[in-house]
Computed example of a mutant assay.
Amino acid sequence: MSTRLATRFKACAAQGRAALVTFVTAGDPDYDTSLALLKALPGAGSDIIELGVPFTDPMADGPAIQAAGLRALHAGQTLAKTIAMVHAFRESDADTPIVLMGYYNPVYIYGVDRFLADAKAAGVDGLVVVDLPPEEDNELCLPALKAGLDFIRLATPTTDDRRLPKVLANTAGFVYYVSITGITGAATPDADVVGQAVARIKRHTSLPVAVGFGVRTPEQAAAIAAGADGVVVGSALVDALRASLDADSHATPATVPAVTELVGALAQAVRGAARVAAE
């Protein structure tokens, strides 16, 4: 079965380039601004959107994304509103893949079956749930796959060849390679080391491999794009949004453009790196 994620990665590969995957937090700094940004991302150059589900204890996230989640929660964002945001996005965009990224607690509280049905109906394509290891696949991964949602697994620098098959067993959509050890936005990845890690993962799977955690600049994105199927940028976009807010952390007319301009520069870099590699 062809999915939006598979179609998009295939299209990018046909163009000889990596996909640009952009992360923003749903509801940051408020629902309306967040939806406007979501709708603007594809036109700015985003190939795939990761939409962060705000949570009070985001243990894998660094200070920037933690702060974004708190802004969203203070503004009243919920998992139900995040699903509603995807539904509103789909009214004008039927092609751009959307992946919800977050933690299991909000899904558990919402109810797994209800969540999967509502997410699928809204137009969600996949899930990244960072605190559910393969040993807990019965909780959400297997039901998600049955419901027609890709379950995207994280692989890290400490995921060795013995552990990797377990991680990949029920992974779908793509493999998310965490390029550094630690939290999001905490360090800068080494493109050569990342390229070797991606090649190792691809010996175990035919799925695309997207690389994230620590990619902040167009130059870094271009370097990573040379050896990966996708480049994920999150903290840098969240930082750009935060810098555009007023003293009370409210949106300004500069908020959406602050993010889309950076996305445009990242997209240009990723596409430029692919052309150089293809020559």
Rank of each mutant, 00 (worst) to 15 (best):
V238F: 06
F55D: 03
A11L: 10
R163T: 12
L38S: 14
A223W: 02
A172V: 07
A197G: 03
Y31D: 08
L241T: 07
A258L: 08
K81W: 05
L262Q: 15
Q15C: 12
T156F: 00
G43N: 12
I65M: 00
G212K: 05
L266E: 04
V178T: 01
T22W: 04
A75M: 13
A144H: 08
T96K: 05
E279Q: 13
G111S: 11
Y31R: 11
A254Q: 15
L168S: 10
K202H: 11
P257Q: 13
F151C: 06
Y108M: 14
A155F: 00
D57R: 12
R242D: 15
V99T: 12
A251D: 06
V256M: 10
A187H: 04
S46T: 14
R200Y: 06
L149D: 13
E91T: 12
G123V: 06
P218V: 12
N138K: 12
I49N: 10
R17D: 12
L168C: 07
S92G: 09
G195Q: 03
A223L: 05
L164F: 06
T158C: 03
A68V: 13
G148K: 08
T188Y: 02
E261P: 06
T33G: 13
R114N: 13
D61W: 01
E135Y: 04
L266D: 05
A68H: 03
I98G: 12
S34D: 10
K81H: 10
A40F: 01
L245I: 02
T159Q: 02
T56H: 11
C141R: 14
T25K: 05
T3P: 03
T184A: 01
D47E: 13
R203Y: 04
K166Y: 14
A67T: 14
A273G: 12
G69D: 05
D239W: 01
A247F: 09
K166F: 15
A240Y: 10
Q220A: 02
A240L: 07
G182K: 02
K10T: 14
T56M: 07
G111P: 11
D192M: 06
R153S: 08
I98H: 11
Y31M: 06
A222Q: 05
V276Y: 08
T56L: 07
D161P: 01
P29D: 04
K166D: 15
V215H: 00
Q220Y: 00
Q15D: 14
V175Q: 03
A19S: 14
A278Y: 03
S244C: 07
I224E: 06
L116Y: 08
L237A: 15
I183H: 02
A269I: 09
